[in-house]
Every structure is written in C-alpha cells, then in structure tokens.
Amino acid sequence: MTSGIVATTVAGALLMTIAPTATAGGLPSQAERTARIIEGATGTQDLAAAVPQNGALTASVTDESGVTTTARAPKSSAGEIEITAPDGSVVGLSLPQSRTVEGSLAGAGTTVYTDAAASTDIAVQLTADGGARALTSLKDANAPAQQRYELNLPAGTQAVANETGGFDLVRRSDSDGPDVAIGAIDAPWAKDANGKDVPTSYKLNGSTLIQDVEINKDTAFPVVADPKVSTGWFLYVKFSKSEVKKYESKVKYAPGGAVLCGLLAIPLASVACGAITGGSLTHLAGVWSSAAKYKKCVEMKFTLPGITPIPTYIGAKNYKC
C-alpha cells in the first residue's frame, strides 16, 4: 500500500497558518531559514495538517473512506519517523544525525533539526497522502556527502531494489500466496541552491539505506536531498514465475478476479480487487498468458475505493524478477 517516509527535504500545507519563528531581533530563526530552503526545493502543496501527538513532535492522520494511515515526526533527531499503514504495519526510518537536537516546526509545516550533523540540517515533512519525507540540507562542502538511514521494517518484510533506483518494501509470503509490496522508497533526488539536479543514488547495506550525493567544486550550496518511504493508498502484488504458471489456467478460464482475491492474504484485499471485471479481466488474462509463455513474473496494481475512480484494477505488467 502507499503512504510515506522520506529522507531529505520536503514541504506541505497545514490547515492553519503557522507564524514564522523569529529571533529577538526580528530576523528569521535558523530553523525558519532552513525550512524556507527545503520548501523552496520541494514545494508545500502536498504537506499534511500536522497535530501534536504523544511520543511525537507532530503527526498526521489521513483517512480515506475509513482507511487510515498515520505518520509521525520524532521530537528529536535521535528518534525515528514512523508510518502506520492501514493494515497496522509500522515502517520506521531513523534520521542521519550525529548529535541529538530537539525539533521545531517551521515554514509551512516542516520539522527542522538544526545542525543535527556536521554542516547539515535535517528536516521531516508529513505529506497529505499519509506519508513522510526525511530531508537533509547540506550547508557547505564540509557536510557529509553520504547519508545513512536505518530502516525498521515489519517482520517478514524486505527492501527490494526496483528499476526506478528506489526500493519496494515487500512482505514475503510464508504460504502459497504471492509476495506483497506494502510500501516503497521512491527514487532519490537532490538539488543545489540554483535548483540544479545533483547526481544521487541509493544502496542498501543490511537494514541501512545509504544515499550518496555527488558533490564537486561546481556545486552550489545548500544542497537538499531526499529519500521517501511510503505505505499508502496503492496495493502492489507480485507473482513469481512459478506462481504465474501455476495459476495460468485459473486466470484464463475462471473468474480471474475472484481467483486472485482469494490469493491475497492481506486486509482489504477483497475490496481492492473485487472490481476486476469485463475488459480488465480480459486484459489480465492476456498479460498472464504472455507472462507464462515467456517465463516472466507479473506485477498487479490496485487502488482502494474512494481514492481513484473505478476500475479498481489498474493493470498488470511484466516486471523484472
């Protein structure tokens, strides 16, 4: 499902305007200046309304047709962003801090942890789709070009690299059913002070997500960078080659939607895939047959009711196993 956590810089719109934090001399505080830099890179259109919550500095609750996702920003840089998906799964992401700093809400809704690492401010934004972004603002050439985030995933869930440069958060099936992607880490991005894209990439070392930012003599500081983790309103289901072969005849000759709904051992599955009918079902059968013939895997994407118009079933495609 899709709702998010991001590491680097992002912004959003609150239901109420928050007055800028100022110093005694009337000038913007460092947190406010950092928030402006970050929000300049990310925009503020997708920020969620953040509210106080026990154990967190701010939290946002997204409710669509009774399906709820909660995102939380930690009180200090030593804490972790947490996103609770509609099925109760919790995804956590630590911040790349080297010293503990209390957070402060600034700008249009960005939580800033000032100087939480060498020449680096860290920020968190809660987004209106039920996600969150963790951002870094690299202030000068002394800032570390590599940021490390610890992933705290639900039991049985792994981060699997995808073709976009990001990762799918995949819950491995312990039965006869398919693996299910409960969330994703979007492809990384970074921008310099002139709005120019800065090359950046991810790698995964155990549970540590590492973002490398390629800084050189021509880089204009500050640089804002961002990984995003989500667990929200989309449901991605991946069928292995053997599963595609195993269910080929059932999908082709039986009510495929009902067959696949029965395979999805997750909450909301029957709701999410119940509308696979008519032309969508014919398309699914064709894709499935082709995947079986050429020994490919199949990925399916569903949306939850109330989020996008029907058909709930969006499509199926071959994907790299």
Rank of each mutant, 00 (worst) to 15 (best):
Thr219Pro: 06
Thr17Lys: 04
Ala269Trp: 02
Leu281Lys: 11
Leu57Phe: 13
Leu57Asp: 10
Val170Gln: 03
Tyr149Gly: 04
Pro311Ser: 13
Ser249Lys: 06
Gly262Asn: 01
Leu263Asp: 01
Glu163Ser: 13
Asp168Phe: 08
Pro309His: 15
Asn205Leu: 13
Val112Pro: 11
Arg33Ile: 09
Gly4Val: 01
Tyr313His: 02
Pro74Lys: 13
Ile310Asn: 15
Leu93Ala: 05
Ala49Asp: 15
Gly43His: 06
Leu284Phe: 03
Glu64Thr: 15
Glu80Gly: 00
Arg148Lys: 09
Lys217Gly: 10
Thr100Pro: 05
Gly156Pro: 08
Lys301Gln: 10
Val6Pro: 03
Gln125Tyr: 07
Ala71Ile: 05
Lys250Trp: 00
Ala41Val: 13
Ser175Gly: 11
Val244Trp: 02
Ala159Pro: 04
Ala184Ile: 02
Ala13Gln: 12
Ala141Cys: 03
Phe234Ser: 03
Gln158Leu: 01
Pro188Lys: 11
Pro20Glu: 09
Ser280Ala: 09
Gln45Phe: 07
Ala291Leu: 02
Tyr202Trp: 04
Ser173His: 06
Ala184Lys: 14
Thr58Ile: 09
Gln30Tyr: 03
Gly88Ser: 01
Ser89Val: 04
Met300Gln: 07
Met300Tyr: 00
Thr68Cys: 08
Ser104Ile: 14
Val271Gln: 15
Ser77Pro: 07
Thr208Asn: 02
Thr127Asn: 14
Gly232Trp: 04
Arg148Glu: 13
Lys241Val: 15
Pro305Arg: 11
Pro20Val: 07
Thr231Met: 10
Asp186Cys: 11
Ser137Leu: 10
Ala285His: 01
Ser201Asp: 12
Ile37Gly: 03
Asp176Arg: 01
Val271Ile: 14
Ala35Gly: 13
Ala184Val: 05
Glu102Cys: 14
Thr44Met: 04
Lys317Met: 09
Ala19Gly: 08
Thr120Glu: 00
Ser29Glu: 05
Glu102Pro: 10
Ile81Asn: 08
Pro154Thr: 00
Val160Met: 10
Ser230Thr: 10
Leu268Ile: 10
Pro222Gly: 03
Ile215Phe: 13
Val198Met: 14
Glu32Arg: 10
Pro178Gln: 08
Thr8Cys: 13
Pro267Glu: 08
Ser77Gln: 02
Val287Asp: 03
Tyr247Val: 01
Thr157Arg: 02
Asp197Tyr: 14
Thr21Tyr: 04
Gly4Lys: 04
Val229Thr: 11
Ala316Gln: 05
Val101Asp: 06
Ala141Tyr: 04
Val6Cys: 11
Ala117Trp: 05
Gly315Val: 10
Ala11Leu: 12
Val229Ile: 08
Gln125Cys: 15
Ile185Gly: 08
Lys295Asp: 15
Arg133Ala: 08
Thr23Val: 09
Ala141Gly: 03
Val6Arg: 09
Arg133Pro: 02
Lys245Val: 12
Ala73Cys: 07
Arg33Gly: 07
Trp233Asn: 14
Ala108His: 11
Ala128Lys: 14
Ala116Pro: 00
Ile38His: 06
Asn205Gly: 01
Ala134Glu: 00
Gly109Pro: 04
